[in-house]
């Protein structure tokens, strides 16, 4: 088997030409569907177990309005800034893209940081994952979202690295689009967490 690379071949000359980028982005949408189902099951779990306090604290006793409102505000803003990054992509301005992505990453880190402090406070108050079924479901639902955000941060940093190295190519263009799609998705999931877990919890 020869590994020879026939230099730069015009893609449009290939008879079987399939637009690789569009295929990859399509596949990512399918992945998002399956990720959405993953979150749906976690939401269902939370709803099934939400009143099983087992003598432990309730949502109303635990959740602090300023913290989760701040988390929501930060994440919504970061979704907006990642949107600005894709806008820069269309204009072909690498610098703009990178800068907005960096802002997004910083906001993402702030979000995760707030969430981690929230969890630590809860645990210190004695509300751990093994206190009750309600808390198990809470930690796992919110925590899974947090892990997704953390993975998104690493992914975005790796994308920034590539953008600064190669500029905007077909490849980096696609990678940026996909990561920003992912980020919007996490934002949508958070809106549901905000409503189902926090708002209904304190009400």
């Amino acid at each position: 088997m020869s590994q020879s690379t026939a230099g730069k071949i015009d893609h449009h000359n290939e008879e079987e030409h399939h637009d690789t980028s569009s295929i990859k982005i399509f596949g990512f949408w399918i992945f998002l569907i399956s990720d959405l189902i993953l979150f749906s099951v976690l939401f269902a779990t939370y709803v099934v177990l939400r009143t099983r306090y087992s003598g432990g604290p309730t949502g109303a006793e635990l959740f602090e309005v300023p913290i989760f409102v701040a988390e929501t505000f930060i994440l919504l803003t970061s979704s907006f800034t990642s949107g600005l990054a894709t806008l820069g992509l269309q204009q072909g301005k690498v610098k703009t893209v990178i800068n907005w992505l960096i802002v997004t990453v910083v906001l993402g880190i702030a979000f995760v940081g707030l969430e981690v402090t929230e969890f630590i406070t809860l645990v210190e108050e004695g509300a751990t994952i093994s206190t009750s079924a309600f808390l198990s479901a809470f930690y796992v639902l919110v925590g899974t979202h947090g892990l997704h955000v953390s993975a998104g941060i690493i992914w975005m940093i790796s994308t920034i690295f590539q953008l600064s190295r190669y500029g905007i190519t077909e490849e980096t263009n696609r990678k940026t689009q996909v990561v920003s799609l992912y980020w919007h998705f996490l934002d949508v999931v958070w809106i549901f967490i905000f409503t189902v877990v926090y708002l209904l919890g304190v009400m």
Binding site: T45, S54, S130, A133, Y139
Partner: peptide
């Protein structure tokens, strides 16, 4: 998570729900 972190999703105690 039940087994490793001692959560209570499907346990008998702690409000877990095995039927779920």
């Amino acid at each position: 998570i039940d087994r490793y972190f001692g959560a209570n999703f499907f346990t008998l105690a702690g409000g877990g729900n095995p039927m779920y």
